[in-house]
Simulated assay, not measured.
Amino acid sequence: MTFDKFVESRSPALLRYATVLTGDPHMAEDVVQEVLIRAHRKWSRISSLDLPETYVRRMITNQFLSWRRRKSSGDMSFAPGEMPGLEPVLADPTSQYDDRAELSARIGELPRAQQAVLVLRYFCDLPDNEIADVMGCRSSTVRAYASRALATLRTTTVKGVR
């Protein structure tokens, strides 16, 4: 597959992934654009892989984890239901809950590695071993990040911290 065809067919999915990962559609566009520029330079090697999209997704994750221009507040600029390009394929049963935007904001306050694990686990529905491959760590580290992230979210919910 040529690079142009890859970008044409897979960029909407990569942009959705990056938007959920970053919580900011503008930052997601920047991350995806930066990654696609780097991927273009080594496309002959990437295209020879069995799953080039998985490799590019890992590049997006790494770019997000090292992004230097991240907003200092950690707040999401859009609630997930308002993010352009993230219209659910099916009716979203969680849209009926008022605290969805609040939960998204609290996820945005987690350390980036924990955010990435939650997105890969619950948005991409990947098992721990595949998340570990994407993030370049061990499965036990993935489980630790997920455990800490969920514990933090539970604690802030129980205490009512906003």
Results as ranks from 00 to 15, higher is better:
71 K>M: 04
72 S>Q: 12
72 S>Y: 12
73 S>A: 02
74 G>Y: 04
74 G>S: 01
74 G>R: 01
75 D>N: 01
75 D>M: 05
76 M>N: 01
77 S>C: 04
77 S>E: 00
78 F>P: 00
79 A>I: 02
79 A>Q: 00
79 A>D: 06
81 G>D: 05
81 G>R: 05
82 E>R: 02
83 M>W: 06
84 P>F: 12
84 P>H: 06
85 G>Q: 07
85 G>S: 09
87 E>S: 14
88 P>V: 12
88 P>T: 11
90 L>M: 13
90 L>A: 11
91 A>F: 15
91 A>E: 12
92 D>P: 10
92 D>T: 12
92 D>L: 12
92 D>I: 14
93 P>R: 03
93 P>C: 09
93 P>G: 11
93 P>V: 11
93 P>M: 06
94 T>E: 14
94 T>S: 11
94 T>M: 14
94 T>L: 15
95 S>V: 14
95 S>G: 07
96 Q>V: 15
96 Q>S: 12
96 Q>E: 13
97 Y>D: 04
97 Y>L: 11
97 Y>K: 06
98 D>S: 14
98 D>V: 10
99 D>K: 14
99 D>P: 10
99 D>L: 13
100 R>C: 04
100 R>W: 08
100 R>T: 15
101 A>C: 05
102 E>S: 11
102 E>A: 12
102 E>V: 14
102 E>H: 10
103 L>P: 14
104 S>K: 00
104 S>D: 07
105 A>W: 11
105 A>E: 07
106 R>N: 07
106 R>V: 05
106 R>W: 09
106 R>S: 09
106 R>A: 05
107 I>T: 08
107 I>A: 00
109 E>D: 11
109 E>V: 13
110 L>H: 02
110 L>C: 08
110 L>Y: 08
110 L>N: 06
110 L>K: 05
110 L>A: 06
112 R>I: 03
113 A>T: 02
114 Q>L: 07
115 Q>M: 08
115 Q>S: 02
115 Q>V: 06
115 Q>C: 08
116 A>S: 09
116 A>K: 08
116 A>Y: 09
117 V>S: 04
117 V>N: 01
117 V>R: 01
118 L>Q: 06
119 V>E: 03
119 V>H: 06
120 L>K: 01
121 R>M: 01
121 R>Y: 08
121 R>C: 07
121 R>W: 04
121 R>F: 09
122 Y>P: 08
122 Y>N: 07
123 F>C: 05
124 C>Y: 10
